[in-house]
Each structure stands twice: as structure tokens, then as C-alpha cells.
């Protein structure tokens, strides 16, 4: 094993156990032609924690999330996941390693029902081949039942029973966000990436979403990495925060540490937010 650290983790004030390092970003640099989106950033993510990435618009937060999810491959630096250096991978291969995500702009199948959308989150857990699937025969039948059970638990967990059969296109924005979270959860990920889960929500929807995120972390011990603009939400939810500005990391620590960091105040909190 490479780069394993004998790290026991710690226990948070509210009694949750945070484990050792799950993923480590080492000197990541990402360029799009001449534009440098991420400049030499390093940080780690621990098992079981809620890790936030914040920063002004264009700071490179979403790019960072895309690096974690394997959608972008950085030109420099490496991603150490579960103790191994992660090779260049296709996004679906990354998904199979237990990483699931939601998107800033909702990416659901609009014409499909909520249930079917969430079932797609189980694709990586289905083994039956296309013929068995088409005839709904043999393995396919049993598999669907098992996966449906898992999906129903997620539906129950996120309290979306009433829209189970509703086509996604007919749902309001806040519920679509919740369905997207449900699909990501259905994959039973070990790391869950949330790209602005509260964007465009009203106060009540935000509070619901906060509760769901905390419950997911609490109930399944899922590690959560989230990008968020709402400072209140970030400070309440997360265990540790990475602050980015113009592609650089300018702060890293607990919400309190970050809040009192001079550079962060100057770069982020002082700048008008959208």
C-alpha cells in the first residue's frame, strides 16, 4: 500500500466518529488551454466528515469537484483514494469506486418518473445482461426486486413517497434537487459529492435539505463533499472547509478557523456574493 497514514481520526463535538483519510488531493493543477482553473491545491477528505468547498464565483470549486469525481483529469498532481494513487479513469469507472454526485444544474431524466430516475442510481449494482433484462427473466427479476427495495428505503428516507410515480418534469425545483440526491444515495456511495445542493431554494427547502444532508451523514456514515454559496449553511453543516479564490487555496480548517482567517475575510466574505 502506498501513502497509507496511520491516522485514527477523531470524534466531533456532537459524537460522530470521523475516520482516517479517504481521499487526498496532492498538488492538483488543472488548465483549460491557457486558463488555469486550479493552481497547485492540496487537501484531504476524511471518512465520515462533511467537507465543504467554498469560494467566490469562478474560484474553481466546481472544477475541483469534477476532479474528485474523475470528470476532469488534472494536468499535474495526483488523487490518492483509499490509499492508492488513482489512475486516469472514465467517470463511470470512478462511480463504481463508490463516488456519487449531484449537479449544480439538475441532470435528471425529465420524462421519466421519480422512481425510474432513482432506479438508474442502482445501475452499478445490476448484473443481469440485456437479454435477461428485456425478457425480465432469471436474474433480472430478482435483481429488480432487491434494487427496488433499496430504492424504496431511499424514497422513505428523503420523504418523497408522494411523488414516486410523478414524471420529474412536473416537479418544482426544490423537489427535483431532492430526487437528484435520492438518485446519488441509491448508488450507496462511500463519498457523496454535492454541487450547490441549496442553490435557488427558499428558506424552508434549504432547511429540509440541510436536515437530509446531516441525516445521510449520520445514518449511513456517508462522507460528504459539498460546494455551497450560503455561508450560514456551510458553517452549520461542515466539519472542515476549504476556501478557494482564483484557483488557489487560501484557507483550510474548521468553520471557526476559516471564519477568522484574514485572507478569507478579504477574499470571500468581503466580496459581494451573488
Amino acid at each position: 500500500m502506498l501513502d497509507t497514514q496511520p491516522d485514527e481520526g477523531y470524534t466531533t463535538a456532537d459524537g460522530r466518529k470521523i475516520g482516517g483519510v479517504a481521499m487526498e488531493m496532492k498538488n492538483i493543477t488543472l488548465r483549460f488551454g491557457g486558463v488555469v482553473a486550479i493552481k497547485d491545491i492540496s487537501f484531504d477528505i476524511r471518512w465520515g466528515e462533511v467537507r465543504a468547498i467554498i469560494g467566490p464565483n469562478g474560484a474553481g470549486k466546481s472544477s475541483m469537484l469534477n476532479v474528485i469525481s474523475g470528470f476532469y483529469n488534472p494536468q499535474e498532481g495526483e488523487v490518492i483514494y483509499k490509499g492508492y494513487r488513482r489512475p486516469r479513469m472514465r467517470p463511470y469507472q470512478v462511480a463504481r469506486t463508490g463516488i456519487a454526485r449531484t449537479f449544480q444544474n439538475i441532470a435528471l431524466f425529465e420524462g421519466m418518473s421519480v422512481l425510474d430516475n432513482i432506479m438508474t442510481g442502482r445501475l452499478n449494482h445490476m448484473k443481469a445482461n440485456i437479454f435477461q433484462q428485456a425478457m425480465w427473466w432469471g436474474k433480472a427479476q430478482k435483481e429488480e426486486e432487491e434494487n427496488r427495495e433499496k430504492v424504496e428505503k431511499v424514497i422513505d428516507f428523503l420523504e418523497i413517497q408522494h411523488i414516486r410515480k410523478t414524471p420529474v418534469a412536473r416537479l418544482p425545483y426544490g423537489l427535483k434537487k431532492r430526487v437528484e440526491l435520492a438518485r446519488a444515495l441509491a448508488a450507496e456511495p462511500s463519498i457523496l459529492l454535492l454541487d450547490e445542493p441549496m442553490a435557488g431554494m427558499n428558506v424552508e427547502e434549504k432547511e429540509d435539505m440541510c436536515r437530509f444532508i446531516l441525516d445521510v451523514n449520520d445514518e449511513f456514515g456517508t462522507t460528504i463533499v459539498l460546494i455551497e454559496h450560503d455561508m450560514g449553511v456551510v458553517m452549520d453543516l461542515s466539519d472542515r472547509v476549504v476556501v478557494m479564490d482564483y484557483g488557489k487555496k487560501i484557507g483550510d480548517g474548521t468553520p471557526d478557523e476559516v471564519r477568522n482567517n484574514e485572507e478569507v475575510i478579504k477574499a470571500y466574505l468581503g466580496v459581494t456574493d451573488d
Binding site: D14, G15, R16, F157, R211, L214, D215, D218, E219
Partner: peptide, 8 residues
């Protein structure tokens, strides 16, 4: 009755 969120 419902265990969810009650762990802590």
C-alpha cells in the same frame, strides 16, 4: 417510533 436522525 421512527429511528431516523435519533442516533445522536
Amino acid at each position: 417510533l421512527d429511528k431516523r436522525g435519533m442516533r445522536k
